[in-house]
Amino acid sequence: MRNTRTLTRRAVLTAASVTAALVLAACGNDSGSGSGGDAGGDSSASSSASAGATAGAHNAQDVSFAQGMIPHHRQALEMAKLAADRASSAKVKDLAARVEKAQDPEIKTMSGWLRSWGEDVPTSSDSTAESMPGMDHSGGSAMPGMMDGSDMDELEKASGADFDTMFLTMMIDHHKGAVDMAGTEKSKGEYGPATSMADDIVTAQTAEMTEMNKLLGKS
């Protein structure tokens, strides 16, 4: 399944590269709208919850959401950091910076939840498709949207317009996975700050996917 997905992604990248390069080259330096997840709201909610929260204030889904989304976010940060010196488009660099700004605080917030619940916080070594803890994916062994080692190696080796196209294509896939995970938390989670963050992730990352598709020349 991984080979099929990788081959499909490479075919999409090849087909999209010329169009994406032209669209990205034509883009100005204006920034898009703000990105994913208001960590400030989570911080205030977390502090108020700590005053009266008990073990019953959250459920297993909340734990799975945090333990899964932390490594998922970490991989997004790894991808975003590569854009600083590899991307050729100012639009791509701006998007990557906004991904970092939104998701790094969310990682800290979710880590705090897990510690307060007495649960394990995933380590940085968990940020691969093969080692994701937490959520049940109904027959799939990897987190939705996560890149494997070969995907990340390809992105790291790319530069210029090729990087831009690869980054956008991979990040759209990554965002789709995060939205899927957040949707599960919204429907099954119990902890208010976690379901609120999940809602923020769905809203912000859906908007970013629209933005990235436009940069790739897709409607």
Rank of each mutant, 00 (worst) to 15 (best):
S138F: 15
S159K: 11
D151G: 03
D148K: 14
G140C: 13
E156A: 13
K157S: 03
S127I: 07
L155D: 05
M135G: 02
E156V: 03
M146W: 06
M132F: 00
E156W: 01
S127D: 15
D148N: 14
G140W: 13
A158F: 00
M146V: 07
L155H: 04
M135A: 03
A158G: 02
H137F: 07
L155N: 05
P122D: 06
D126V: 00
E130R: 15
P133R: 14
M147G: 09
M143A: 05
M135R: 07
G134K: 14
E156F: 02
A158E: 00
P122I: 04
S124E: 15
A158C: 03
M135Y: 07
S125Q: 14
M147L: 14
G149M: 10
G160Y: 00
A129M: 11
A161N: 02
S125R: 14
G140E: 14
G145S: 05
G160V: 01
G145M: 08
K157R: 13
T128V: 13
D153M: 08
G145T: 01
S127T: 05
S150G: 08
A161P: 08
K157L: 08
M143G: 02
H137D: 01
T123K: 15
E156M: 07
S150R: 11
A161W: 00
L155I: 03
S124D: 15
T128R: 10
G134I: 15
T123L: 15
P122E: 11
G149A: 10
S138I: 11
L155C: 04
A158V: 01
D136C: 08
G145I: 10
L155T: 03
M146T: 02
M132I: 06
T123M: 15
M135S: 06
D126P: 00
V121E: 07
A142P: 00
D151H: 03
K157E: 03
H137Y: 08
E130W: 08
E156L: 09
S141K: 12
P122F: 10
P133H: 10
M135N: 06
P144M: 06
A161F: 00
M143V: 09
M147W: 06
T128N: 11
D153L: 08
A161R: 04
M152W: 01
V121S: 11
M143W: 01
H137C: 06
D136Q: 14
E154K: 12
S131R: 14
D136P: 04
S150Y: 07
D153K: 10
G140D: 11
T128I: 11
M152V: 01
M135I: 09
G134A: 12
A158K: 05
A142T: 08
E154D: 07
G140Y: 14
P144D: 00
L155P: 05
A158W: 01
G149F: 02
G160C: 04
S150E: 10
H137R: 09
G140Q: 13
M147Y: 02
A158P: 07
S124P: 08
S141A: 11
A142Q: 07
V121A: 12
M147C: 12
S127Q: 14
V121Y: 06
E154G: 09
D151K: 09
E156R: 14
T123H: 13
G140I: 13
S138E: 12
P122W: 14
T128P: 04
G139T: 09
S131W: 03
A142L: 04
S141I: 08
M152H: 05
M135T: 04
